[in-house]
Amino acid sequence: MASACIIDGSTHTGEELDTRHLEAFLGAVDAGSVTRAAGMLHVTQPTVTNRIKALERSLGLPLLERLPGGVRPTRAGHSILEHAREIVRLSGRVRRLADASLTPQGRICVGASESLINHRLLPLIEYLLLRYPDMDVSLRLSTPQEALVMLRNGQMDCVFMIGSGASDEDLEHCDLRPEPFALVAGERPGSRRPGSGEPPSSILVSADLDVRHCGELLHEVESTLRAGRMLRLDSITAVKRLAESGIGVGLLPEVTVADDLADGRLRRVVDWRPATPTYTQALWRRGDTGHPALHAVLKAASDVVSTG
Protein backbone atom coordinates (compact mmCIF):
# COMPACT_ATOMS: atom_id res chain seq x y z
CA MET A 1 0.00 0.00 0.00
CA ALA A 2 1.41 3.37 -1.03
CA SER A 3 2.33 5.63 1.87
CA ALA A 4 1.15 9.25 1.98
CA CYS A 5 3.63 12.10 2.29
CA ILE A 6 3.44 15.89 2.34
CA ILE A 7 5.36 17.85 -0.32
CA ASP A 8 4.99 21.64 -0.53
CA GLY A 9 1.74 21.47 1.37
CA SER A 10 0.14 18.82 -0.88
CA THR A 11 -0.57 15.23 0.02
CA HIS A 12 0.97 12.62 -2.28
CA THR A 13 0.47 8.87 -2.08
CA GLY A 14 3.93 7.95 -3.30
CA GLU A 15 2.60 6.34 -6.48
CA GLU A 16 4.77 6.93 -9.53
CA LEU A 17 3.44 8.88 -12.50
CA ASP A 18 2.33 6.70 -15.40
CA THR A 19 2.24 8.21 -18.89
CA ARG A 20 -0.98 6.30 -19.57
CA HIS A 21 -2.59 8.23 -16.72
CA LEU A 22 -1.36 11.50 -18.22
CA GLU A 23 -2.67 10.46 -21.65
CA ALA A 24 -6.10 9.77 -20.14
CA PHE A 25 -6.13 13.17 -18.43
CA LEU A 26 -5.05 14.99 -21.60
CA GLY A 27 -7.56 13.07 -23.67
CA ALA A 28 -10.41 14.05 -21.34
CA VAL A 29 -9.35 17.71 -21.37
CA ASP A 30 -8.99 17.85 -25.16
CA ALA A 31 -12.23 15.98 -25.85
CA GLY A 32 -14.18 17.63 -23.03
CA SER A 33 -15.55 14.22 -22.09
CA VAL A 34 -14.26 11.00 -20.54
CA THR A 35 -16.41 8.97 -22.93
CA ARG A 36 -15.02 10.70 -26.03
CA ALA A 37 -11.50 10.39 -24.63
CA ALA A 38 -12.02 6.63 -24.34
CA GLY A 39 -12.90 6.48 -28.02
CA MET A 40 -9.81 8.47 -28.99
CA LEU A 41 -7.54 6.30 -26.82
CA HIS A 42 -9.21 3.05 -27.92
CA VAL A 43 -9.90 1.92 -24.36
CA THR A 44 -13.06 1.63 -22.28
CA GLN A 45 -14.61 4.56 -20.40
CA PRO A 46 -13.98 2.95 -16.97
CA THR A 47 -10.30 2.54 -17.92
CA VAL A 48 -9.98 6.27 -18.64
CA THR A 49 -11.83 7.12 -15.42
CA ASN A 50 -9.59 4.81 -13.34
CA ARG A 51 -6.42 6.22 -14.89
CA ILE A 52 -7.46 9.79 -14.17
CA LYS A 53 -8.36 8.88 -10.59
CA ALA A 54 -4.97 7.19 -10.18
CA LEU A 55 -3.25 10.34 -11.43
CA GLU A 56 -5.27 12.49 -9.02
CA ARG A 57 -4.32 10.15 -6.15
CA SER A 58 -0.64 10.26 -7.07
CA LEU A 59 -0.65 14.06 -7.11
CA GLY A 60 -3.06 14.49 -4.22
CA LEU A 61 -5.11 16.99 -6.22
CA PRO A 62 -8.40 16.99 -8.15
CA LEU A 63 -7.53 17.61 -11.80
CA LEU A 64 -10.94 17.50 -13.47
CA GLU A 65 -14.24 19.11 -12.63
CA ARG A 66 -17.13 16.79 -13.52
CA LEU A 67 -19.98 18.65 -15.25
CA PRO A 68 -23.38 17.44 -16.51
CA GLY A 69 -22.18 17.68 -20.12
CA GLY A 70 -18.58 16.54 -19.68
CA VAL A 71 -15.43 17.61 -17.83
CA ARG A 72 -13.07 20.55 -17.62
CA PRO A 73 -9.73 20.98 -15.86
CA THR A 74 -9.60 22.42 -12.38
CA ARG A 75 -7.12 25.16 -11.52
CA ALA A 76 -4.62 22.46 -10.58
CA GLY A 77 -5.37 20.65 -13.82
CA HIS A 78 -4.67 23.79 -15.82
CA SER A 79 -1.38 24.27 -13.99
CA ILE A 80 0.03 20.88 -15.05
CA LEU A 81 -1.47 20.75 -18.55
CA GLU A 82 1.53 21.83 -20.62
CA HIS A 83 3.97 19.87 -18.45
CA ALA A 84 1.82 16.75 -18.88
CA ARG A 85 1.86 17.22 -22.67
CA GLU A 86 5.64 17.55 -22.65
CA ILE A 87 6.08 14.42 -20.52
CA VAL A 88 3.86 12.39 -22.87
CA ARG A 89 5.64 13.74 -25.96
CA LEU A 90 9.10 12.98 -24.54
CA SER A 91 8.03 9.54 -23.35
CA GLY A 92 6.77 8.70 -26.82
CA ARG A 93 9.99 9.93 -28.37
CA VAL A 94 12.10 7.82 -26.02
CA ARG A 95 10.04 4.73 -26.91
CA ARG A 96 10.42 5.41 -30.62
CA LEU A 97 14.17 5.97 -30.37
CA ALA A 98 14.51 2.74 -28.41
CA ASP A 99 12.59 0.88 -31.13
CA ALA A 100 14.45 2.39 -34.05
CA SER A 101 18.06 2.15 -35.19
CA LEU A 102 19.70 3.66 -38.24
CA THR A 103 17.43 1.61 -40.49
CA PRO A 104 13.63 2.02 -40.42
CA GLN A 105 12.19 -0.40 -37.93
CA GLY A 106 9.94 -0.47 -34.90
CA ARG A 107 6.38 0.75 -34.54
CA ILE A 108 4.99 3.88 -36.17
CA CYS A 109 1.41 5.05 -35.90
CA VAL A 110 -0.20 6.98 -38.76
CA GLY A 111 -3.60 8.68 -38.63
CA ALA A 112 -5.75 9.64 -41.60
CA SER A 113 -9.28 10.52 -42.65
CA GLU A 114 -11.69 8.18 -44.41
CA SER A 115 -11.27 9.73 -47.85
CA LEU A 116 -7.47 9.58 -47.77
CA ILE A 117 -7.32 6.01 -46.51
CA ASN A 118 -9.66 4.82 -49.25
CA HIS A 119 -8.28 6.88 -52.12
CA ARG A 120 -4.67 7.87 -51.40
CA LEU A 121 -2.90 5.89 -48.69
CA LEU A 122 -3.39 2.19 -49.44
CA PRO A 123 -0.57 2.16 -52.04
CA LEU A 124 1.65 3.92 -49.48
CA ILE A 125 0.95 1.31 -46.80
CA GLU A 126 1.58 -1.50 -49.29
CA TYR A 127 4.87 0.14 -50.29
CA LEU A 128 6.01 0.48 -46.67
CA LEU A 129 5.09 -3.10 -45.74
CA LEU A 130 6.97 -4.56 -48.72
CA ARG A 131 10.03 -2.32 -48.50
CA TYR A 132 10.48 -2.22 -44.70
CA PRO A 133 9.57 -5.64 -43.24
CA ASP A 134 10.99 -4.67 -39.82
CA MET A 135 8.72 -1.65 -39.53
CA ASP A 136 5.34 -2.11 -37.81
CA VAL A 137 2.98 0.39 -39.45
CA SER A 138 -0.32 1.08 -37.71
CA LEU A 139 -2.94 3.05 -39.70
CA ARG A 140 -5.83 4.57 -37.72
CA LEU A 141 -9.01 6.04 -39.12
CA SER A 142 -9.49 9.40 -37.40
CA THR A 143 -11.09 12.75 -37.97
CA PRO A 144 -8.54 15.56 -38.38
CA GLN A 145 -9.45 16.96 -34.96
CA GLU A 146 -8.87 13.62 -33.21
CA ALA A 147 -5.71 12.93 -35.19
CA LEU A 148 -4.11 16.29 -34.35
CA VAL A 149 -4.78 15.83 -30.63
CA MET A 150 -3.20 12.37 -30.71
CA LEU A 151 -0.26 13.66 -32.76
CA ARG A 152 0.47 16.38 -30.23
CA ASN A 153 0.14 13.92 -27.33
CA GLY A 154 2.61 11.49 -28.90
CA GLN A 155 0.02 8.79 -29.63
CA MET A 156 0.53 9.22 -33.38
CA ASP A 157 3.74 9.88 -35.27
CA CYS A 158 2.32 11.28 -38.48
CA VAL A 159 -1.08 12.47 -39.71
CA PHE A 160 -2.41 12.72 -43.25
CA MET A 161 -5.25 15.14 -43.78
CA ILE A 162 -6.73 17.55 -46.32
CA GLY A 163 -5.81 21.11 -45.44
CA SER A 164 -4.98 24.55 -46.71
CA GLY A 165 -1.99 26.67 -45.79
CA ALA A 166 0.61 26.25 -43.09
CA SER A 167 0.34 24.04 -40.03
CA ASP A 168 0.47 25.21 -36.41
CA GLU A 169 3.70 26.35 -34.76
CA ASP A 170 4.39 23.05 -33.00
CA LEU A 171 3.88 20.99 -36.18
CA GLU A 172 5.57 20.73 -39.54
CA HIS A 173 3.82 19.78 -42.76
CA CYS A 174 4.31 19.17 -46.47
CA ASP A 175 1.77 19.45 -49.28
CA LEU A 176 1.77 16.16 -51.18
CA ARG A 177 -0.75 16.85 -53.93
CA PRO A 178 -3.67 19.16 -54.75
CA GLU A 179 -6.93 17.81 -53.32
CA PRO A 180 -9.78 19.97 -54.67
CA PHE A 181 -13.31 19.84 -53.30
CA ALA A 182 -16.57 19.57 -55.20
CA LEU A 183 -20.09 20.73 -54.35
CA VAL A 184 -22.54 18.03 -55.38
CA ALA A 185 -26.29 17.52 -55.35
CA GLY A 186 -28.74 14.86 -56.49
CA GLU A 187 -30.59 14.52 -59.76
CA ARG A 188 -33.59 12.86 -58.22
CA PRO A 189 -36.99 14.30 -59.29
CA GLY A 190 -38.23 16.82 -56.73
CA SER A 191 -34.79 17.45 -55.24
CA ARG A 192 -33.74 21.02 -54.59
CA ARG A 193 -31.59 22.56 -57.31
CA PRO A 194 -29.23 25.04 -55.65
CA GLY A 195 -28.14 27.87 -57.88
CA SER A 196 -31.41 27.96 -59.81
CA GLY A 197 -33.55 29.86 -57.32
CA GLU A 198 -34.09 28.40 -53.88
CA PRO A 199 -30.95 28.00 -51.74
CA PRO A 200 -30.30 24.58 -50.16
CA SER A 201 -31.49 23.99 -46.63
CA SER A 202 -28.16 22.47 -45.59
CA ILE A 203 -24.52 22.13 -46.58
CA LEU A 204 -23.43 18.58 -45.80
CA VAL A 205 -19.76 18.25 -44.84
CA SER A 206 -17.88 15.05 -44.08
CA ALA A 207 -15.99 14.94 -40.79
CA ASP A 208 -12.70 14.35 -42.61
CA LEU A 209 -12.61 18.03 -43.59
CA ASP A 210 -10.59 19.92 -40.98
CA VAL A 211 -12.68 23.01 -40.25
CA ARG A 212 -9.86 24.98 -38.59
CA HIS A 213 -7.46 24.55 -41.50
CA CYS A 214 -10.08 24.91 -44.24
CA GLY A 215 -11.97 27.90 -42.84
CA GLU A 216 -11.56 29.95 -46.02
CA LEU A 217 -13.03 27.15 -48.11
CA LEU A 218 -16.08 26.86 -45.86
CA HIS A 219 -16.61 30.62 -45.89
CA GLU A 220 -16.43 30.52 -49.68
CA VAL A 221 -19.08 27.80 -49.84
CA GLU A 222 -21.39 29.57 -47.39
CA SER A 223 -21.11 32.81 -49.38
CA THR A 224 -21.88 30.99 -52.63
CA LEU A 225 -24.87 28.97 -51.46
CA ARG A 226 -26.30 31.02 -48.57
CA ALA A 227 -27.59 27.81 -47.01
CA GLY A 228 -29.53 27.77 -43.76
CA ARG A 229 -27.10 25.55 -41.87
CA MET A 230 -24.04 23.34 -42.11
CA LEU A 231 -24.18 19.71 -40.99
CA ARG A 232 -21.06 17.64 -40.28
CA LEU A 233 -21.42 13.88 -40.75
CA ASP A 234 -18.97 11.11 -39.85
CA SER A 235 -19.45 9.21 -43.11
CA ILE A 236 -18.64 10.23 -46.68
CA THR A 237 -21.23 7.72 -47.86
CA ALA A 238 -23.87 9.40 -45.70
CA VAL A 239 -23.04 12.82 -47.18
CA LYS A 240 -23.34 11.45 -50.71
CA ARG A 241 -26.62 9.64 -50.08
CA LEU A 242 -28.23 12.64 -48.39
CA ALA A 243 -27.10 14.91 -51.21
CA GLU A 244 -28.44 12.39 -53.72
CA SER A 245 -31.84 12.40 -52.02
CA GLY A 246 -32.05 16.21 -52.05
CA ILE A 247 -31.56 16.85 -48.32
CA GLY A 248 -28.72 19.28 -48.98
CA VAL A 249 -25.55 19.97 -50.93
CA GLY A 250 -22.49 17.86 -50.24
CA LEU A 251 -19.00 19.33 -49.88
CA LEU A 252 -16.57 16.48 -50.53
CA PRO A 253 -13.09 15.87 -51.98
CA GLU A 254 -13.45 15.43 -55.74
CA VAL A 255 -11.72 12.07 -55.64
CA THR A 256 -14.52 10.64 -53.45
CA VAL A 257 -17.33 11.60 -55.89
CA ALA A 258 -15.66 10.98 -59.26
CA ASP A 259 -17.55 7.71 -59.86
CA ASP A 260 -20.85 9.19 -58.64
CA LEU A 261 -20.52 12.11 -61.05
CA ALA A 262 -19.60 9.81 -63.94
CA ASP A 263 -22.59 7.52 -63.23
CA GLY A 264 -25.00 10.45 -62.91
CA ARG A 265 -25.94 9.72 -59.29
CA LEU A 266 -24.64 13.17 -58.35
CA ARG A 267 -24.07 16.40 -60.26
CA ARG A 268 -21.87 19.40 -59.69
CA VAL A 269 -23.59 22.47 -58.28
CA VAL A 270 -23.60 25.47 -60.65
CA ASP A 271 -20.17 24.46 -61.98
CA TRP A 272 -18.67 25.71 -58.72
CA ARG A 273 -14.89 25.52 -58.47
CA PRO A 274 -13.16 26.44 -55.20
CA ALA A 275 -10.91 29.48 -55.18
CA THR A 276 -9.18 28.24 -52.00
CA PRO A 277 -6.53 25.59 -52.77
CA THR A 278 -6.56 22.47 -50.62
CA TYR A 279 -3.98 19.70 -50.47
CA THR A 280 -3.35 16.24 -49.13
CA GLN A 281 -0.87 17.05 -46.37
CA ALA A 282 1.44 15.10 -44.11
CA LEU A 283 1.91 16.56 -40.61
CA TRP A 284 4.35 15.62 -37.86
CA ARG A 285 5.73 17.12 -34.66
CA ARG A 286 8.42 19.71 -35.17
CA GLY A 287 11.87 18.20 -34.59
CA ASP A 288 10.79 14.55 -35.01
CA THR A 289 12.28 13.93 -38.46
CA GLY A 290 15.36 12.30 -36.88
CA HIS A 291 13.18 9.24 -36.26
CA PRO A 292 14.19 6.77 -39.06
CA ALA A 293 10.73 5.21 -39.41
CA LEU A 294 9.03 8.61 -39.67
CA HIS A 295 11.59 9.76 -42.22
CA ALA A 296 10.87 6.61 -44.26
CA VAL A 297 7.12 7.25 -44.17
CA LEU A 298 7.49 10.88 -45.24
CA LYS A 299 9.91 9.99 -48.04
CA ALA A 300 7.59 7.21 -49.25
CA ALA A 301 4.59 9.54 -49.12
CA SER A 302 6.44 12.07 -51.25
CA ASP A 303 7.24 9.35 -53.79
CA VAL A 304 3.95 7.42 -53.78
CA VAL A 305 1.11 9.76 -52.78
CA SER A 306 2.35 12.74 -54.79
CA THR A 307 2.34 10.71 -58.01
CA GLY A 308 -0.48 8.27 -57.28
Rank of each mutant, 00 (worst) to 15 (best):
M230Q: 10
L183K: 13
C5L: 05
G248N: 06
H295K: 14
G27F: 06
S58N: 04
M150H: 10
P46L: 10
Q281H: 06
G60W: 03
M1I: 00
D288P: 06
S223G: 04
L17I: 15
A24C: 06
P73H: 09
P144F: 12
Q145K: 14
R96I: 10
R57M: 02
R226L: 11
R229F: 00
G186V: 08
E244V: 03
S202K: 10
V221A: 05
E146Q: 14
D210P: 08
R193M: 04
Q105M: 06
R241F: 05
D30G: 04
E15S: 11
G228C: 08
T256R: 00
V34P: 00
D259A: 15
G287H: 06
R226S: 09
R177C: 12
K240W: 10
K240N: 03
G250D: 03
L283Y: 02
L61R: 14
G308V: 02
P62W: 03
H295R: 15
V88L: 09
D303F: 02
L64V: 08
G186S: 11
S196E: 15
R96Q: 10
T74F: 09
V149S: 02
S201D: 01
L233F: 07
L102D: 13
G69S: 10
H213F: 03
D271H: 09
D157V: 02
D260E: 15
I87N: 03
T143R: 04
H291Y: 11
A147E: 08
V88I: 07
